[in-house]
Every structure is written in C-alpha cells, then in structure tokens.
C-alpha cells in the first residue's frame, strides 16, 4: 500500500515553501533587522531559489534522495548562517527516517518530522522558549501527532499543525531571546517576533497546502 506522502508531494511542499519564502522575503528581513542582522529573508530566498533550480534538474527516485541530495545539500551550501545548517539538518533527518521509501504513511511522516525536530534542537542546542524556529516547529509537530492519534486525516492534522505553528511563532514576540544574534540584545529582544519562527511557520503552512490537498 502506498503512503499518503510521496516524492512528488514532498517536492511540491518544498516548491510551495520556496514560493512563500520569496513572497515573504522582505517581511523576514524586516523581522531580522529588529533583533538580528537583517539577512534571514535574503539568505533563505537565495537557498530556496537554488533548491528549486536543483529540483528542476533532478528526478529523485526516492524520498531520501530528494530531501538529502537535492534539498539538504543545496541548503547547506547556499544559505549559510545558523538557518542554513538548521533547515538542512531538519530535512537531512527526515531523509534518514524515510530511507529508500518512495512514500510514507501519515504516522511515518509525523515520526520523521519528530526526528527532524529533535535533530534541530540538538544541533542548535535549543529548547522551548529560547525564541527560535524551534518555538514554531515543536508545537506544530506536537499538534500533528495529536491530531493523527485522534483519528484525523493528514489534511486536517496539518491544518491543526499550521494553527499551532502560527501560535508558536506569535508567542515568540514577548520572549527574551536566549539563542542566536537576538540574544545579544538582552531585554531589547522582547516585543519582536523571531524571524526563524516566522519562516518555520511558513514551512508548516506550506506542508498543509502541498501535502494536505492530495490526502483529503
């Protein structure tokens, strides 16, 4: 039996995210100007433009090839900064979890996202409340797992994950940054949304758009 998430739909997820990053590049840069060094939008857009170019050239035979060789490797070598490593790490770990499969069922996909999230936390040495991308990703993965466990389909579960990611992103505004460039501002980081959490929320929303539609 084929799973609900496959190479084609995952590639669609990445392309959707790339489009949303391009559309929100200025917003991400503005958020990063307030508490960082004003490069998150520029860097993410450069990276995902390269990923889309790589997707146009390759026809990945399985999920691991798509997410490791095309997506993660390209990100690692084009984005730079913490975001490059962390997004690459996320996709790399999902690729490892997927192995040679061409498709994953809902639960296996959620498990792969959980593994990706944990690897991001380890590589970035981040925890909940540090005011990073983790604060949007973690509640999203949790909501996805909870919805699936409650019997929801992937589409509904990803919609709930999107709501949780957006809430997680918004909740970073009052936080005191403990990681990344924003942490150097001390109290002055309070009151600004974290740009990494903002891009991570776009990633989950893109998953709902691209992966949810096919599975109903």
């Amino acid at each position: 039996m084929g799973g609900t998430v496959n190479v084609e739909s995952l590639a669609r997820w990445i392309r959707t995210f790339a489009r949303d990053i391009a559309a929100n590049q200025d917003l991400l840069t503005r958020l990063d100007s307030a508490i960082g060094d004003a490069d998150h939008g520029v860097n993410m857009n450069r990276g995902f433009e390269a990923v889309v170019a790589a997707l146009d050239k390759h026809r990945p035979s399985n999920i691991a090839v798509l997410l490791r060789d095309v997506v993660a490797t390209t990100l690692l070598n084009t984005v730079g900064g913490a975001a490059g490593v962390l997004y690459a790490t996320f996709f790399l770990r999902i690729a490892v979890a997927a192995g040679q499969e061409r498709s994953l069922d809902d639960l296996a996909f959620a498990k792969a996202l959980r593994a990706g999230l944990e690897e991001v936390a380890q590589r970035g040495k981040v925890a909940a409340g540090d005011k990073t991308m983790f604060d949007a990703l973690a509640p999203a993965v949790e909501a996805l797992e909870g919805a699936l466990a409650g019997g929801a389909g992937l589409s509904a579960a990803l919609r709930r994950a999107t709501v949780a990611a957006d809430a997680g992103r918004d909740a970073t505004a009052p936080m005191l940054a403990r990681k990344g460039r924003a942490s150097y501002l001390g109290q002055r980081s309070i009151g600004h949304q974290d740009p990494g959490a903002a891009s991570a929320a776009l990633l989950i929303a893109a998953a709902a758009t691209a992966l949810g539609e096919a599975s109903g």
Binding site: T29, S33, A34, I35, G36, D37, A38, D39, V42, R181, Y184, L185, G186, R188
Partner: peptide, 28 residues
C-alpha cells in the same frame, strides 16, 4: 547590508549604541 539596501537600524544624531557586535545589530 548591500543586499538589503537600507540601514539595519536607525540611530539619531544624538544617540549611540553601547555593547554592539560586528554585524550592524543594535547593542545592549
């Protein structure tokens, strides 16, 4: 930053930022 095209933050003539790094980020 050349790719951004506008100053990373606004600092009036009368003020300075103490505790800065090296990335044009505001200070402490």
């Amino acid at each position: 930053v050349p790719a951004v095209g506008r100053p990373t933050f606004e600092l009036p003539e009368t003020d300075m930022e103490i505790g800065i790094g090296i990335h044009g980020e505001p200070g402490r």
